[in-house]
């Protein structure tokens, strides 16, 4: 479904990604793990069209979407839940969700709003509150719901458990399981490596901008040499 080949991205002189490649098949949950600064966020940002790409190609559903504008890539069916959630704090929960469905028709949007209210009961209770007043866990759910409002074929999440209390981290991973059960395709960046490997069908390990390992979650969990990669060394 998603096919990234030889992606290289630079910030000025800094190489953030070096020749990174990955694929995501339909219905898969794929994890992207590695230490801070490994280039995980850069990789998602490059796929979503937020960051300029120096070389490499990104194909989605058979179409070349390399260096497309973010709004075009979203329309192709790829949605990103950005790092730090980036919800629109001054707007209500409902308005945030509506913006998520900006590409959908009015009727479809109304349907999707109902769907989200059902999937995320927390949001229903805060429907008309400005999103800035929500707790971290609620905001994360809103960010995910907002991304789902565009009916994406593939949803990318950047550090969904970042800054959340352990119980909320559990909730995020439960949510990923729920979405998987619905048959959705998900690419998740996580620094909580063990949890991610348990939740993912497959995973890639990124270090210093390069993919250093790949395999099923279970395979990677068994590789003791990767312990150092997660913790450093």
């Amino acid at each position: 479904m998603l096919e990234v080949t030889g992606l290289t991205t630079k910030y000025g002189a800094i190489s953030a990604l070096r020749d990174a490649s990955l694929t995501v098949g339909a219905g898969e949950v794929v994890g992207l793990i590695g230490p801070n600064g490994a280039g995980k966020t850069t990789l998602l940002g490059s796929i979503a069209g937020l960051l300029p790409i120096d070389s490499g190609t990104i194909r989605f559903d058979g179409n070349d979407i390399t260096s497309g504008a973010p709004e075009k890539i979203l329309r192709a069916g790829l949605s990103l839940v950005p790092e730090h959630r980036r919800i629109f704090a001054d707007m209500t929960v409902e308005e945030n969700l509506k913006i998520g469905g900006v590409t959908r028709s009015g009727a479809e949007r109304a349907e999707l709003l109902d769907e989200m209210a059902e999937l995320f009961p927390v949001l229903r209770d805060k429907w008309d509150t400005p999103a800035g007043y929500m707790s971290g866990g609620e905001a994360q759910q809103l960010a995910i719901a907002r991304a789902l409002m565009s009916k994406p074929k593939l949803i990318m999440m950047d550090e969904p458990s970042l800054g959340l209390a352990p119980i909320l981290v559990d909730l995020v991973f439960e949510l990923i399981d729920t979405l998987r059960a619905q048959g959705r395709t998900i690419l998740v960046v996580e620094q909580n490596a063990t949890r991610m490997l348990r939740a993912a069908d497959r995973a890639y390990v990124l270090r210093s901008g390069e993919v250093v390992a790949t395999g099923t979650g279970a395979e990677l969990l068994d590789r003791s040499d990767l312990f150092d990669t997660f913790v450093g060394g």
């Binding site: 069209g49 973010p70 329309r75 980036r86 707007m91 913006i99 900006v102 590409t103 907002r146």
Partner: peptide
């Protein structure tokens, strides 16, 4: 309003 508060994120949502 979304674009005024966070232009990039609004684009990620599909706002042209």
């Amino acid at each position: 309003r979304a674009a005024a508060s966070d232009f990039d994120t609004a684009r990620l949502m599909g706002v042209k």
